[in-house]
Every structure is written in C-alpha cells, then in structure tokens.
C-alpha cells in the first residue's frame, strides 16, 4: 500500500515537472518579446535578441516612440485593427448565429444542400479566391476601406457550423410552445434561443476576435495606404531591406497582444468550454 502511494506521488511529481517545463518553453518567446521591448535599440542592434538582461540599459523609450514615430502611425494601425475587429465580430456573430439556428431548428427544402455547402466552404482555404476577390472589391470601389476588408468574411462557414452544432443540442419544444402562444419566428430566435446559445456566443466571440485581430493577408491586399494598415501589416512594413525599426517592432508587438489577452482572460472559462462543446462533437 505504502509503495503504491509513493509510486503515485512520484508519478504526479514527474507529471507536474513535465508540465512546468513545457509551460516555460511556451512562455520563452514572450520573454524575449517583452525583454527586447525594453532594451535600448543599440543593444538589440549589436547583440540581436538574447537572454541577457541588463537593467541599467532598459527603459521605456521604445514605447514612447510608438507615439512619436511617423506621428504615431502605430496608433492609427491600432485604431484600424480595433474598428475592423469589433465590426467584423459583431456582424459575424449576428449572421452566423442566425444561419446556424436556421439550419438546426427548421426542416425545410434545401436544408441538407445548404449544410453541405457550409461543410465544403469550411474545407476550402479562402486564399484560393485571393485574386478574384481583389478584383470584386476593386469593382465595388471598396479598395483601401474597412468595408473591403470586412464584407467578404462576415459569414464564415466554420462559425455557422459551430452554432449549428450547438443548436442541434437545443430542444425544439421551446419554439413550438412559443408558437402556440403566438410568438413570431424572429422573436423566438431572439428572446428564447439566443440566451440559450450564450456559451456558443462566448466561444465564437473570442475565436472571431482573435481571427479578425490577427488577420494579415487580406487586409494587406486591400489596404493600400500606410495609415490604413492593420497592426500585423504595419509591423511588417517596419521591417525593410534597409534596416528594421526595432523600436516599433518589439514595443508594437507587445502592445498588440494586450487587447486579445484581456478578452481571453475575461472569458477564458466560457471560451474553453464553448470550444469543446461545438468544435468537436458531431
């Protein structure tokens, strides 16, 4: 009995050690990013990024430069990312929850076909349409605008799939009894089912926010003028063949992670639960 107990304790200790080790590995890139963001540019220039910390040579200059560099262009990238992310997330949530609900809660002609289309769209990498979409957005006169970045991606198939899977688990009886009471179809959705779908909304909020905030290729193609860039594209533009703007790169990277981290920390329980409810089952 004693030996089994010691054996178990040893097992737990080894497991925790492995978990701690992996956690440290996972955090190392953040360590470099944060430490470099406080280092003097001359130090980075001479030594690259490395493990050494010399507190006497650390300061907030890089962060201050976010305001002074090219008249604080970093903050207009920040604003662009914020506006695009918020608008896109709201639209995605509204549209895909409607579609997912429609596919799960009604029997109608064409339902199977539409769901099959959703599945196909989930499989196809969006980048195959890069050029024709660019052409379409040009023809619509939406180049270099928020609408051009947002509109093509407001009804993503993966999010529809997620809401549909979640709604399949909700009873149709609520809707039936509400109908008998004379409640309209849209009110049934809005007042009865949307509250029931709250965990799904939680998960999709973070997932969509994350995707929109980190999106790179499409905004890179649509946004032509430097002040209209989103953060990732802006930071990329700070890397030039003629030398890199390290101040902007590191401090800008750190600042760009902050909002998404806040959203995650505030909703993480809901998010992780939601992710595992809708993402995998079915």
């Amino acid at each position: 009995m004693e030996s089994i107990k010691t054996q178990n304790r040893l097992k737990t200790t080894l497991s925790v050690l492995l978990m701690v080790f992996l956690a440290i590995l996972v955090m190392v890139p953040f360590y470099f990013m944060i430490v470099s963001s406080f280092k003097d540019v001359s130090v980075i220039f001479a030594n690259g990024i490395n493990v050494n910390i010399d507190f006497s040579k650390m300061n907030f200059d890089n962060y201050k430069s976010l305001w002074t560099n090219q008249n604080g262009i970093y903050w207009s990238w920040y604003k662009n990312s914020l506006v695009i992310t918020v608008v896109e997330t709201v639209l995605v949530l509204v549209f895909t929850s409607m579609v997912g609900y429609g596919l799960a809660q009604y029997d109608f002609k064409g339902r199977k076909f539409i769901f099959a289309l959703v599945l196909v769209m989930m499989m196809v990498p969006p980048s195959i349409l890069l050029l024709p979409l660019y052409k379409l957005v040009t023809q619509l006169g939406l180049m270099d605008s928020y609408a051009g970045v947002i509109l093509p991606y407001v009804v993503p198939a993966s999010s529809i799939f997620f809401f549909r899977q979640f709604c399949m688990g909700l009873s149709r009886e609520f809707a039936e009894s509400a109908r008998i009471d004379g409640c309209g179809e849209f009110r049934i959705f809005w007042q009865i089912y949307v509250p029931l779908m709250k965990p799904a909304f939680g998960a999709m909020t973070i997932l969509t926010t994350m995707n929109a905030w980190n999106d790179f290729l499409w905004p890179l193609v649509v946004m032509k003028s430097t002040e209209n860039f989103v953060i990732p594209a802006g930071l990329m533009s700070a890397m030039t063949p003629y030398g890199n703007n390290y101040k902007l790169l590191f401090a800008g990277s750190v600042m760009s992670i902050v909002p998404i981290l806040i959203v995650f920390v505030l909703n993480q329980k809901q998010f992780i639960e939601g992710l595992t409810v809708g993402g995998v089952k079915g």
């Binding site: 996972v26 953040f30 990024i49 994350m210 980190n214 990277s253 992780i272």
Partner: peptide, 20 residues
C-alpha cells in the same frame, strides 16, 4: 498558459522567431 501562444498573431510570432 499553453493556450496563450495561439492568441498571438502568426505574424508577430514569426517576427520573434525570425530573430531567434
């Protein structure tokens, strides 16, 4: 903790790893 990296954009992750 294991989840935080995926919140980072692949561009920013790429920038850091590029230097590494």
């Amino acid at each position: 903790v294991y989840f935080v990296p995926v919140l980072t954009s692949s561009v920013i992750a790429g920038l850091i790893f590029k230097y590494a």
